[in-house]
Amino acid sequence: MAIKKVDLKKAYRLLQIGPTTMISAKHNGIENVMAAAWVSLVGNNKVMAFIGKQAFTRELVEKSGYYVVQIPTVKQMNTVLYVGENSYKTINNKLDKIPIFYQDEFDLPLVEGCAGWLICKVIPNARNEKEHNLFMGEIIGAWSDDRVFNNGHWIFDDAPDELRTVHYVAGGQFYAIGKGTKFNHGPGSD
């Protein structure tokens, strides 16, 4: 084994093993979905999402104060690429091709077929939003497809491969999550 230095320009890839996501939002009857690679947990019940200034969805998040994080599966990659490559600003009917649904109590679009959904209420932080394009949200509603997430645990080993989550690395390269493995909890835990 060799320990090698990582170029700082690529060091973010070490952390980018979380699932590729889609973010949706709605305001004043207008709804949109975008692909998002930089979404992560930042504390108990809090999510941080990078939403660039060019994204139409950002306008909806800023105006409504809410966003939905969807965790797509392998079988949804065409949808992920479609919403990532096409903006509402140029194709305002792009959701006509995306099956969406709503959960009771929330007037926010959720993309059908995902492994999980998190509805987040924005915790305002003007500096982070303006300078870093980061939106923190408190999770106020969550759902999962029980074929892949049940009783608070991922169960990919029992699910079909097309229901595995997708993980973006860089340069157009994605990976589906692999098989689960259990490890001991350190020396002396045998």
Rank of each mutant, 00 (worst) to 15 (best):
A2G: 10
A2W: 14
I3N: 12
K5I: 11
V6C: 12
A11Q: 08
R13A: 08
L15W: 12
I17M: 11
M22K: 10
H27Q: 07
N32K: 08
W38G: 05
L41E: 12
N45D: 13
N45S: 14
M48Y: 06
F50Q: 04
G52N: 11
G52I: 03
F56K: 06
T57Y: 05
R58G: 04
L60S: 00
E62F: 02
V69N: 05
P72V: 04
V74N: 03
V74Y: 06
Q76R: 07
N78F: 04
L81I: 15
E85L: 04
Y88D: 01
K89L: 09
N92K: 10
N93A: 08
D107H: 04
V111F: 07
G116T: 00
W117V: 01
C120Q: 06
K121W: 09
V122P: 04
V122M: 03
I123C: 06
P124T: 06
K130T: 15
K130Y: 12
H132S: 13
L134D: 09
F135R: 06
M136V: 15
G137T: 05
E138V: 05
E138T: 09
I140W: 09
G141D: 11
S144P: 01
R147N: 05
N150F: 06
N151L: 02
D158I: 00
E162S: 08
H167Y: 01
Y168Q: 01
V169L: 15
H185Y: 13
D190N: 14
